[in-house]
């Protein structure tokens, strides 16, 4: 296969709480993501899946391990050049679309902030054109750029969060539980949108979630996390049809099946 877009090697993330207590959130996790694929990361709360996402995008300072992204090392001290590359090419979509959008900023400015910082346009007009196109792409209208986050519904806000990530034309998007705060009917809309965008732009996703049926639906490969360790990884097919690790098996057995007859016979 071709070269991985992201290579995480033995990532360790500890948080020192006090002199004699350290939370060992992630203990030596390694995986790779290839261009254009979707890697699903599943596990219970407290298994470290969100921490891994945040360490990769450098919201945290990894304790140990190496992260290679787009052929550059992005763990350890970042040079200005690498930092700019990282911030442009890796974006994140957060879980709660209300708390991740600045309530005092207009939608247009929220989406345009990255463009402003990286100077990705030459005229004001061009900036507004890019933002307008982006809004249309996620199913909103260019006129929405003048509105504030509170004027939108949850599903629409998550579309704004996606537009903000996409406007930078990133190679990797980290989607941290980006649909779990939404209603079922809206979840399907957002997942369809994410798939369309992937088909169009060829970006890769790190899809972090606890909803296994959705992870199965969207991912090419899956990693199963348990207490900060990657206990099993493989293609979606392998994980779901032939889970090896007892933890993966118990996780799969716990997923409720939307079929009353089958569900009743399982227990």
């Amino acid at each position: 296969m071709n070269e991985p877009l992201l290579k995480v090697d033995n990532l360790v993330q500890h948080f020192k709480v006090s002199r004699n207590f350290t939370v060992k959130a992630v203990n030596g996790v390694s995986f790779e993501i290839f261009p254009g694929e979707t890697y699903g990361l599943v596990g219970e709360s407290g298994s470290g899946k969100t921490t891994i996402g945040r360490s990769i995008i450098r919201l945290y300072e990894p304790t140990a391990g190496e992260i290679i992204f787009n052929r550059d090392k992005i763990s350890g001290t970042l040079t200005d050049k690498v930092r700019r590359m990282l911030r442009k090419n890796m974006q994140m979509i957060f879980q709660d679309p209300m708390s991740s959008l600045n309530p005092r900023k207009k939608i247009g400015d929220i989406i345009g902030e990255g463009l402003d910082i990286h100077g990705l346009y030459s005229t004001r007009k061009e900036r507004n054109r890019i933002i307008g196109e982006m809004l249309e792409k996620v199913g909103l209208s260019p006129a929405h750029a003048e509105r504030y986050p509170h004027q939108f519904s949850g599903g629409q806000r998550q579309r704004v969060g996606i537009a903000r990530a996409l406007v930078m034309k990133p190679k990797l998007i980290i989607a941290d539980e980006c649909i779990s705060a939404l209603d079922v009917s809206i979840q399907a809309q957002v997942v369809n949108l994410m798939k369309d965008i992937q088909a169009e732009t060829g970006c890769a996703y790190l899809f972090i979630a606890h909803d296994l049926s959705m992870v199965k639906y969207i991912s090419d490969r899956i990693g199963v996390l348990h207490l900060g360790n990657l206990v099993e990884t493989g293609t979606t097919q392998e994980i779901f049809s032939n889970p090896q690790h007892p933890y993966t098996q118990s996780l799969l057995a716990a997923v409720p099946i939307p079929n009353p007859r089958v569900e009743r016979h399982r227990h």
């Binding site: 629409q156 979840q187 399907a188 296994l212 049926s213 199965k216 639906y217 099946i257």
Partner: peptide, 19 residues
């Protein structure tokens, strides 16, 4: 149909448009 089951492998999820 908006909620995939473990066998769903359609290209797109059937979604209810709008809100």
């Amino acid at each position: 149909s908006a909620m995939p089951d473990l066998e769903t492998n359609d290209d797109r999820l059937y979604s209810i448009p709008g809100s």
